[in-house]
């Protein structure tokens, strides 16, 4: 875990984010705060009493422009958002990385704190991440052919690809995948060709 602690003497990460954004933080990418763990970031939230009220802000959509450290995002329902990257923002794109790899056209999920001007100071940004239920239709050395609903998806086998069999720990051994198996695929969508880089493929019994 990381820099996030709440309570006496701890670092309140949400306040830190707000300060970073309001202070005009423009540093994008590597953090000056040490390791950033998205798990830890909002760990001490209290339950909201109404399902319509969310404590943190969430942004979903496609990136339409990158202006310095601000991502312009077009939501899937026609809404528009501005996401401020700060020193404390964690970035995932295939793997934990820096904001330098974010491109216009990427899909995005972001979590953060809303600033007075409406901009969301991001605590965590996940770029092109997908987690889809599929059926394995074909297996090649460098790619998997997957069915997701009525869609066919090409799954690219990359250096980071791992497989989890029947709940066991992930392994780099993909040899036990079988055509016809149901599989959960966590990966990163490639906007350029609509394929998915497979990070982890999980199959059950």
């Amino acid at each position: 875990m990381t820099a996030h602690q709440t309570g006496s003497g701890g670092i309140d990460r949400r306040r830190l984010l707000a300060r970073a954004a309001l202070g005009g933080a423009t540093i994008v990418g590597a953090t000056a705060l040490g390791g950033i763990d998205a798990d830890a970031a909002f760990a001490a939230q209290q339950p909201s009493l109404d399902p319509a009220i969310s404590k943190s802000e969430f942004v979903e959509g496609r990136i339409t422009a990158i202006s310095g450290s601000v991502l312009e995002v077009a939501g899937s329902y026609g809404d528009r958002s501005r996401v401020q990257m700060t020193n404390a923002t964690s970035v995932w794109k295939v793997r934990p990385t820096t904001a330098k790899v974010i491109e216009v056209g990427d899909g995005l999920y972001a979590r953060g704190v809303k600033m007075p001007d409406g901009t969301v100071a991001a605590d965590a940004v996940w770029v092109n991440i997908v987690n889809i239920h599929t059926t394995i239709r074909g297996i090649e050395k460098q790619r998997l052919h997957l069915a997701h609903g009525s869609h066919e998806i090409t799954g690219n086998v990359i250096g980071d690809t791992s497989a989890a069999y029947a709940g066991r720990a992930p392994t780099s051994d993909l040899s036990r995948l079988r055509i016809g198996q149901s599989a959960q695929v966590l990966g990163a969508w490639r906007p350029s060709d609509n394929s998915v880089d497979v990070v982890r493929i999980s199959v059950g019994h």
Binding site: Y77, Y109, N128, V130, N131, H133, G149, W189, P191
Partner: peptide, 25 residues
Amino acid sequence: WFCCGNAWGPCTGAGGGACGNCQSS
């Protein structure tokens, strides 16, 4: 976790789920 409603990438066309109003956001 899963995606639903209007979306990008492979989630496009995921639909509103069994209740018709599911949204990823």
